[in-house]
Nucleic acid binder design. Structure first.
Length: 245
DNA sequence: AACCAGGACGTGA
DNA sequence: TCACGTCATGGT
């Protein structure tokens, strides 16, 4: 049960193994002409890129749409929203749930997610991004968690990537990887694993953003729910499967 | 052709 | 608190 790596060591290895991730992608409202975003909306190191409200909204919508869903399907739903002329706070406020559901069909769980999107925009209508950014990180988090359909991971994703507040995002890959290297149990709670990461790292926005994205990147390769491991031991020097040595 | 994906919520122990 | 069922499309 002795950990093979610390949280800090894992970050060092991941950032050496993979290229800079540049999350969160902003591909609909992204301003590609500036050259700060690539063709899929990922920024190349511009962590301080000042987002407009519609870009923050895109990130928040993406965070909802990708819940338990691969990014391809979520991204298609974002484009579909734009194609249906629903890609703005006001249009989403005016739209019926059924219209939204139809537009985001490709993301799956479209009825639930349409309701969550509605809840989000109604919240944003009386509590703007600007107000939200004026709050302390923990208060803003609580406000987001009050929105039905937005749980801890979605709230933290919005905080970290749209509002640029250092709140560490925990996801299924993060849990599996931490279990794999022996620093957490399989059933570790969201909050406790988050506390572990946040207490092991400097509270740094860039580190938090990159680390989570790197964990997802690494998880996609080696920590799929059904272990399928592409036996590449150079890219993955700290193999998975919690078998004790 | 099953299985999986960048979760959240309601319910009943 | 926790274990489990439900929600659903599209790629492999």
């Amino acid at each position: 049960m002795t950990p093979r790596l610390t949280i800090r060591q894992l970050y060092q290895i991941l950032s050496k193994t993979y290229r800079q991730q540049g999350w969160w992608p902003v591909s609909i409202t992204g301003d590609r002409q500036t050259g700060l975003l690539d063709d899929r909306g990922y920024h190349a190191g511009r962590y301080d890129f000042p987002y407009h409200d519609d870009q923050k909204l895109e990130i928040a919508l993406g965070a909802i749409l990708t819940q338990n869903t691969n990014w391809n399907n979520a991204s298609a739903a974002l484009h579909s929203l734009a194609d249906h002329g629903l890609f703005s706070l006001q249009r989403l406020l005016d739209a019926k749930i059924e219209q939204i559901a139809l537009a985001i069909r490709s993301a799956g769980y479209y009825n639930q997610k349409a309701q969550t999107v509605k809840n989000l925009v109604q919240f944003l209508n009386h509590c703007s991004f600007e107000k939200l950014e004026g709050l302390a990180c923990q208060s803003a988090r609580d406000r987001l968690l009050d929105i039905r359909g937005i749980g801890p991971e979605t709230a933290d994703s919005i905080l970290l990537y749209a509002l640029k507040q250092p709140s560490f995002v925990i996801d299924a890959y993060t849990k599996r990887i931490c279990f794999g290297i022996g620093i957490a149990t399989v059933s570790v709670s969201y909050e406790s694993l988050q506390r572990l990461f946040e207490s092991s790292l400097e509270r740094d926005l860039v580190v938090f953003q990159e680390y989570h994205a790197l964990l997802v990147q690494h998880g996609k390769h080696y920590y799929s729910r059904k272990p399928h491991g592409k036996g590449d031991e150079i890219l993955c020097p700290f193999w998975t499967s919690g078998k004790s040595s």
